[in-house]
Design a protein around this nucleic acid. Structure first.
Lengths: 190, 190
DNA sequence: ATTTTCATGTAATCTGTTACATGATTAC
DNA sequence: GTAATCATGTAACAGATTACATGAAAAT
């Protein structure tokens, strides 16, 4: 009856973890689902209003710290049903990576500078890899790796996040090394 | 002086492979860079006009098959310089994957249907993996794996595409199996 | 004192998708 | 004859970012 956008479903997913304000959701949009879906508060507030209009969330108003009321949102049965229907539909392929796009044109720029950039990417991915590996182990110890545990979704997201960082790390390391080789060959030939 | 969008740089990157029409670029936007950057012709045509306005591409007009003239675009020195400046700038992190978002809320839907969906994703990734592995090997035989070869960018993109498909395949296979386990446990308990 | 956190909203702009519109040539 | 390919464009809409705007409480 009412159209729900992908962002709307993302917010409903977050609200299955418990009631929250728009502000809360903005923060939750960072870890760990934020590694794979991002949104700013300016996008979240109007979307919550639309979800409320559709009856997919319920609002309780209270005193806020600023000039406006603080609004706490809870997912409704209608919201849960809409989410449950959307989830098993085959998801769309969404690429768009500037990191890879730049590799496509790598030999159009100074290889030394490109090597520095990809080495930095590799290092950052390596850092995240270490941190997320520890996080994933902590989750496993708390039982999140069990698919019937309510935190299983977090575990599954972090798991692919980890693997993606590993791929980024290995690929960027390889690319940086190849680019440095071009630099040294050029130096030798000159 | 003129602002160039990421799409603009993507088109300039494609044009370093040789002159092309908007139609050509729309097709080139599919393989292999299209695995990581997509665009429709409705976005490409106006962007080419803007690049021409900025002097980053040159246009030659000729007879077209339809009512309008066919336009062939060539990258200029100014275009090459803009591209070379943009390339070593650290790229933005761009997530957004419906596939992962759905895993985050996996236990809010019927696990049997979710298992089917993720199994399908795994199978499709497996197919791509096989096809791209063959493509990558063919490229390597043609010397594309050499960083000073003009086709090195294609090779690097396909390389990370392959690894990404491998990760998707393994993760979706694992997730489908976990979800099927929930189904069988539930059957046994009822 | 100043910065960060909590808390909500709007406006302007940019980016991207879907649909509309035209028409010749080539392949089946 | 019908469908696919070649070829270029616009319009309407949806999705997302950046900037503007307000203000209390808590931490540094």
């Amino acid at each position: 009856m009412w159209f729900v956008s992908t962002l709307g479903y993302a917010l409903l997913s977050l609200l299955t973890r418990g009631p929250a304000t728009g502000y809360d959701l903005t923060r939750r949009m960072r870890e760990p689902i934020g590694y794979f879906w991002v949104a700013q508060h300016s996008q979240i507030y109007p979307e919550l209003a639309r979800l409320a209009g559709a009856g997919h969330v319920e609002v309780r108003e209270g005193d806020g710290p600023g000039p406006r009321a603080k609004k706490t949102y809870t997912i409704t049965e209608s919201g849960r049903a809409a989410l449950a229907e959307w989830l098993p539909e085959p998801p769309a392929f969404q690429p768009r990576s500037e990191m890879v796009l730049k590799a496509y044109a790598a030999n159009s720029a100074d290889p030394a500078r490109m090597a520095v950039m990809y080495q930095r990417i590799a290092d950052e991915a390596g850092e995240r890899l270490k941190a997320w590996r520890a996080e994933l182990e902590a989750m496993a110890k708390q039982g999140y790796s069990d698919p019937s545990h309510p935190g299983f979704g977090n575990y599954a997201v972090l798991k692919i996040g980890l693997e993606s960082q590993r791929v980024t790390h290995d690929w960027a390391t390889w690319l940086a090394a190849e680019l440095r080789e071009v630099v040294s060959e050029h130096d030798g030939a000159d």
